[in-house]
Design a protein around this nucleic acid. Structure first.
Length: 319
DNA sequence: CGAATTTGACCTGCGC
DNA sequence: GCGCAGGTCAAATTCG
């Protein structure tokens, strides 16, 4: 198996592996963004991403911005065991072959939508409703539910819900087994965009926020629209609006409010740029997921996000 | 008052 | 089949 070393970013070669056997090194080994990532070639074009995202010592990002990326077509839901699961993933060799079936909006999802409409039309008729529900159940037992591609971000942050340029509506919260921290469920507020994300704190390290995105946005980020450029800019934190819920304590170091705000601001910008250009790009085609994967790659090649502002051009990958 | 969040109930998948 | 845990729904509540 060929292995490319690339400025702290390691990209494995040809083999396609099971979802559980690759991805990112232990978050507690990270000293900076993408300090060390190990991503399979097959995984959603992230090789391209990581090839471009050379780690540079010039990237003097604060601890708060420590972030790792996971990508996975059927990423196992991070749970209270989050830390354990993720750490177990590390340093493992591929276990089983995987065809890496990345799906965009699945036919099942479309069926669900259609059936929901049916349900609406017959709201008054209980019998009809029951029949439809039975049909739904039958379908779901016959056809295994397909998951949207998922991307997990592990972020060292004191704020649970990180601003990523999109607008989200919270639709649920659940207690997670063996964890004192609940998991929150968010949906993109844009009509016809069914991207979801889960946010939870790692119980092994409460400073780590695990954000899992599912699906692809069918629209541009509102932040991008505002800025008019792919390198979205979040407005700098404006005094009173900024949350300091957690008392600005990080790893035993007390930060002043302004320090915290600045770090959080940098962090959010990084997140926006990364998500905008990579994991969840604007994709107005309803083409197959593989195509959209390459769209993600090419979009990133055009835009290196925050890094392009920081990393000298010659450091960026050229092919 | 509309939008967003909360929260208990319900649904679904999976392991035993 | 049953129980458990994750995920979603939707009514109630809170917020701006």
């Amino acid at each position: 198996m060929e292995k490319k070393e690339n400025m702290g970013v390691s990209v494995k070669g040809e083999d396609v592996v099971d979802s559980s056997s690759y991805l990112v090194n232990s978050y507690n080994q990270f000293s900076s963004v993408f300090d060390f990532c190990e991503v399979e070639k097959s995984s959603l074009g992230f090789m391209e991403l990581l090839g471009v995202q050379n780690y540079s010592p010039l990237l003097d990002l604060p601890q708060l911005s420590t972030m790792s990326v996971m990508t996975h077509d059927t990423l196992k839901a991070p749970s209270a065991d989050t830390g354990k699961e993720y750490s177990e993933v590390l340093n493992q060799q591929p276990a089983t072959p995987n065809s890496c079936s990345i799906s965009s909006a699945s036919s099942e999802a479309l069926n669900d939508e259609h059936n929901k409409t049916l349900l609406d039309q017959h709201e008054d008729e209980e019998d009809e409703k029951q029949k439809i529900n039975k049909q739904l159940k039958t379908k779901k037992t016959n056809q295994k539910r397909q998951r949207e591609p998922r991307f997990a971000f592990m972020t060292k942050s004191e704020v649970d819900h990180l601003e990523d340029g999109y607008r989200w509506r919270k639709y649920g919260q659940k207690a997670v087994k063996n964890s004192p921290f609940p998991r929150s469920y968010y949906r993109c507020t844009t009509v016809s965009c069914n991207v979801k994300k889960r946010v939870e704190r790692s119980f092994t390290d409460p400073t780590i926020v695990v954000t899992t995105y599912e699906g692809q946005h069918t629209h541009q980020s509102p932040a991008m629209c505002r800025s008019g450029f792919a390198g979205a800019q979040i407005p700098p934190p404006a005094g009173g609006r900024f949350s300091t819920n957690f008392g600005s304590v990080l790893q035993g170091n007390f930060l002043s409010s302004s320090q915290f705000q600045q770090q959080h601001y940098q962090h959010q910008q990084l997140l926006v740029n990364t998500l905008s250009s990579l994991a969840l790009p604007y994709n107005n085609s309803s083409s197959s997921s593989k195509n959209s994967t390459f769209t993600q790659e090419s979009s990133f090649l055009r835009d290196h996000g925050l890094l392009q502002d920081v990393v000298p051009s010659h450091m960026l990958k050229e092919e």
